[in-house]
Structures are given as structure tokens and as C-alpha cells.
């Protein structure tokens, strides 16, 4: 398992770096340095691939963990929603929603109305603190959007 994961990582690196190298080599000036960097990355990635595909005992450190997609996918959806909604709805209302959504989805405890109440209260306090900090103290000009 670990061997194949290492090989996957190495192949991805090789493909990515070759891609970057091709992208950094158009027929124009101003790409010299990116080309040097991409070339270095290709060399390093090939080195990694050689180590990963070398027959015999794997010389690499066991540094690979499996990805718990089953658990984290809702958070990825929340982040995506955040990116999409923040400029449209307003930073503060989106923040409140994100905070609530994360707390609701990932609470290990059973869902009760009382817990929901606590969450709403904490969420509101948090959003208000954000407002105090960024708008009143630091004077950040947040983009105008429909809600707060």
C-alpha cells in the first residue's frame, strides 16, 4: 500500500513538474528563471520516482497517511460555499453560516435544540467580535453585498 502511494506521489510530481516546464518554455523573453526552477523540479521529481520504483526494499520514510474523504468532504463543500457566497452575501452573514454549518456537521455530540441554541449564541458572539475587530478597530473596507 505504502509503496504504491509513494509511487503515485512520485508520478504526480514528475507529471506536474514536466507540465510546469512545458508551460515555462514559450518562445518569448521573460521566462528564463521559471524555466530554471521547473527544470530543477523535474530533476528532483525524477529522483523521487527512481527511489519509489527501485526494486527491492523501499528506502523511503513512511510519511504517507490516508485521506479520510468520508469525513472531510462536508468541510470542503463548506469552504467552497464560503468562497462562493462571501462576496455575494456579505462577509459577516457568510461567516455566521460557515461557523454554524461547521459546528452542526462536525459536533460529536447528539443534536438537541439546546445545543443549537448555544451554537447560535456562540456564532453571533463570534460574528460580532469579527465586526468589532475588522470594521471598527482595523477599518477594513469589506466589499458591499446584499446582507451584512
Amino acid at each position: 500500500m505504502n509503496v504504491w502511494a509513494q509511487r503515485l506521489a512520485a508520478v504526480t510530481c514528475v507529471l506536474l513538474s514536466v507540465g510546469l516546464l512545458i508551460w515555462s518554455s514559450p518562445d518569448a523573453r521573460g521566462y528564463e528563471f521559471p524555466r530554471m526552477v521547473a527544470l530543477t523540479m523535474v530533476v528532483l521529481s525524477v529522483g523521487l520516482a527512481v527511489m519509489a520504483f527501485k526494486p527491492g526494499k523501499l528506502l523511503m520514510v513512511a510519511d504517507i497517511e490516508s485521506i479520510p474523504m468520508r469525513i472531510i468532504w462536508p468541510m470542503l463543500v463548506i469552504l467552497l460555499g464560503l468562497a462562493f457566497l462571501a462576496p455575494r452575501l456579505g462577509f459577516f452573514s457568510t461567516s455566521f453560516l460557515v461557523f454554524m454549518a461547521t459546528a452542526l456537521v462536525f459536533s460529536p455530540e447528539r443534536f438537541t435544540m439546546r445545543r443549537l441554541g448555544i451554537m447560535v449564541f456562540v456564532g453571533l458572539c463570534f460574528t460580532f467580535t469579527l465586526y468589532l475587530l475588522f470594521v471598527l478597530l482595523l477599518n477594513v473596507h469589506l466589499p458591499r453585498a446584499l446582507l451584512f
Partner: peptide
């Protein structure tokens, strides 16, 4: 879970 939401925001 609160911490995660707060850090993201």
C-alpha cells in the same frame, strides 16, 4: 468544531 469554523472564517 468551533475552532475549525473560526479559523476558516
Amino acid at each position: 468544531q468551533y475552532m475549525a469554523g473560526a479559523v476558516a472564517v
